[in-house]
Nucleic acid binder design. Structure first.
Length: 653
DNA sequence: CGAGTTGTAAACAATA
DNA sequence: CTATTGTTTACAACTC
């Protein structure tokens, strides 16, 4: 009972990462930078068109590259490198981030930040992809339409294109042309080009998600996209993002809301009129986009655009599945059933509860409701369970996962809905999950019950067999040194000793004790405390940590010794995410396992200091700050600390 | 084959 | 007394 309530009360901090901000400015800049357009900043028509053109091309190019790469084996990143690598997520691998993970870590971004960044990149990428698709569709449509509706203007396509860029073969129209078309159809609505500049590849892509509902809306063609970034993209996978986005926009539009209005701009296809307030927008809407032939025609175009996009989406989806099937499926085990999800879950479960799990579990228990698209689901499911891992018998454990697992946040986030609704066992160890739960919390500390809640809230899988997994959770908390119990006034909370956590990882990975020592476990401090700092240190000392298998890029066998990637016997979950995982935070990627640490005890727990102020309301929140010193620490700790502290810097090389 | 991980199950103790 | 929370053991399944 408590749990239930807790489940509800707890905030979804896990989704915080969605809150990314703007798209990478680099993307935007690229557009203007490349083009000669800079010359015409003055919002002359020409410049506007050019800008648009550039931006579109840019987006197309990026997206195209990705698409091309993905299918091909050439993909250097997530590819299945060799060992059972989980399926790379097509969508998740922004071409933009080519730099090695460890480089990223150099930035010392705190985990959250990194995640955000990651997410942002991801979003940008997806946006581009969508944009590309949209453009293609639109081009087709326009192509068709122009025959009847108008004559083409004619700026040479691709004129300002970047070196390697070319328009999609099939596209008959250049972005500029499209733009022009819209304008023509619109009859000259558009305002200045400001929009373009701001937005860059920005917002239009996202709209895909909303398109369906309001077709006439946002999915506007290239031009009419919302100006700035709201974090644009709704990454197709997480509805959450969409919601967020919607909310955000609502927010901004304090006055009123309208799908065609956002960020002070009219989002009517081809129209970018600036409307300072909602009232003005309404006026504009009624005046400029009243029911007339022109509007009707635009509406029709938009409908077609949407349809085309949908078709395209389904095609891409098919392609994705085929790719995944190709990459992951073991020759031996062709998962015949299209519904890996449930299958899997049941299989997995079987292990846990041999008899318990009803063979016929609500196979689609959650699925039906789950918003997740096959796209989102696919990656995970099949790879995780589907594949070889689930050898007929339930005996197998899917521990692989964690070896790779990185930060769940990155892994989970994108598939948040999936895990939340699908009864699939997450490919992470309990330790990893627990850590994530704690890290997701505002205070970096959770009570046992809160941890339980996180599990049930985040994974449908853990809504069953509570006794089993809860016991496992407790067991893990007690067993692993990285989990530190801190006494609190109202009880006790669990925190993560990142140092320990990393230490373990490193051990696992390197296998070399010396290295392990590098990790300054003692810097001490605490738990949640400077995660970033710690992360940085960890990274520094173990550059490879971040890279291990993910991405497939470079997992140098050398250091890793054996454990990392290859570990997973079967198919790891989605490595794709790993891609960003690396970015994410150094802290995350490597995963851990339990107790390997030699004999000493946890290095410091910072306990006292960091104690929590009860985040939850479910209890008595009266005492906001319950500072308590933890009793946990035993003398032994200190020893370690010193020990390690000493070497630390030196070892780092 | 042995060591180390991870997941389960279960016994127990301390508390609420 | 019961339910939770924690700690420990034991064991099986895996991986290296």
């Amino acid at each position: 009972m408590m749990q239930e309530s807790a489940t509800e009360t707890i905030s979804n901090s896990s989704m915080s990462q969605n809150g990314m901000s703007t798209l990478s400015s680099s993307q935007l800049e690229a557009g203007s930078r490349d083009g000669r357009s800079s010359a015409g900043d003055t919002s002359s028509e020409v410049s506007t068109v050019e800008l648009l053109h550039l931006q579109q091309q840019q987006a197309l190019q990026v997206a195209r590259q990705l698409l091309l790469q993905q299918p091909g084996s050439g993909l250097k990143s997530p590819k299945s490198q060799d060992k059972h690598r989980p399926l790379p997520s097509i969508i998740h691998v922004p071409s933009t981030r080519r730099f090695p993970p460890f480089l990223q870590s150099v930035f010392d971004l705190p985990q959250q930040q990194q995640q955000q960044q990651l997410a942002a990149q991801q979003l940008v990428f997806q946006q581009q992809l969508l944009q590309m698709q949209q453009l293609q569709q639109q081009q087709h449509l326009l192509n068709m339409q122009r025959q009847g509706l108008l004559s083409l203007p004619g700026p040479a396509p691709g004129q300002a294109a970047l070196p390697g860029q070319t328009l999609p073969p099939q596209a008959g129209l250049s972005p500029a042309e499209i733009q022009q078309l819209w304008k023509d159809v619109t009859g000259g609505g558009g305002g200045g080009g400001h929009n373009l500049e701001d937005n860059g590849g920005g917002g239009s892509g996202l709209d895909l998600s909303t398109n369906n509902s309001s077709s006439t809306t946002s999915s506007n063609p290239a031009k009419a996209s919302p100006p700035i970034s709201h974090h644009s993209i709704a990454n197709g996978q997480s509805p959450v993002l969409n919601h967020r986005r919607e909310r955000d926009s609502l927010h901004e539009e304090t006055g009123g809301t309208h799908p065609l209005y956002g960020h002070g701009v009219c989002k009517w296809p081809g129209c970018e009129s600036i409307c300072d307030d909602f009232g003005q927008f309404l006026k504009h809407l009624n005046n400029e986009h009243a029911l007339d032939d022109r509007s009707t025609a635009q509406c029709r175009v938009q409908m077609q655009v949407v349809q085309q996009l949908e078709i395209q989406l389904s095609k891409e989806r098919e392609r994705l599945q085929a790719m995944m099937a190709h990459l992951h499926m073991r020759p031996s085990e062709p998962k015949s059933s299209p519904k890996p999800l449930n299958l899997v879950s049941s299989v997995t479960m079987s292990k846990n509860l041999p008899s318990t799990s009803p063979p016929n579990l609500p196979q689609t228990p959650t699925t039906p409701t789950a918003p997740i698209t096959p796209m989102a689901a696919m990656p995970q499911v099949p790879s995780v369970l589907g594949g070889a891992n689930v050898p007929s018998m339930g005996a197998m454990r899917r521990r692989h996962s964690d070896k790779y697992s990185m930060s769940l946040s990155s892994e989970i986030a994108p598939n948040y809905e999936f895990y939340k609704n699908a009864d699939v066992r997450p490919p992470f160890t309990y330790a990893t999950l627990i850590r994530q739960a704690i890290m997701d919390s505002a205070d970096m500390q959770l009570t046992l019950n809160e941890i339980y809640s996180w599990f049930t809230r985040t994974f449908a899988y853990f809504r069953r067999n509570a006794a089993t997994w809860k016991n496992a959770v407790r067991h893990n908390l007690s067993l692993h040194k990285c989990f530190v119990r801190v006494e609190n006034v109202k009880g006790a909370v669990w925190t993560v000793d990142e140092m320990e956590y990393q230490k373990r990882r490193s051990q696992k990975i390197t296998g070399s004790p010396s290295l392990v020592k590098n990790l300054p476990s003692s810097l001490g401090y605490g738990t949640a405390l400077n995660a970033s700092l710690q992360a940085a240190l960890a990274e520094t000392s173990l550059p490879l940590l971040g890279t291990p298998g993910f991405m497939g890029s470079g997992s140098p066998p050398g250091l890793l010794g054996g454990s990392p990637p290859g570990t997973m016997s079967g198919s790891p979950p989605t490595l794709m995410h790993m891609t960003h995982d690396e970015l994410n935070g150094s802290l995350d990627h490597l995963d851990t396992n339990g107790h390997s640490s030699p004999g000493y005890s946890p290095p410091v727990h910072m306990p006292s200091v960091h104690v929590k102020e009860e985040p939850l309301n479910m209890d008595d929140d009266d005492c906001p700050m319950s500072l308590v010193t933890t009793a946990n620490h035993s003398p032994e700790l200190d020893d370690d600390r010193e020990l390690e502290e000493g070497n630390l810097s030196e070892d780092l090389e």
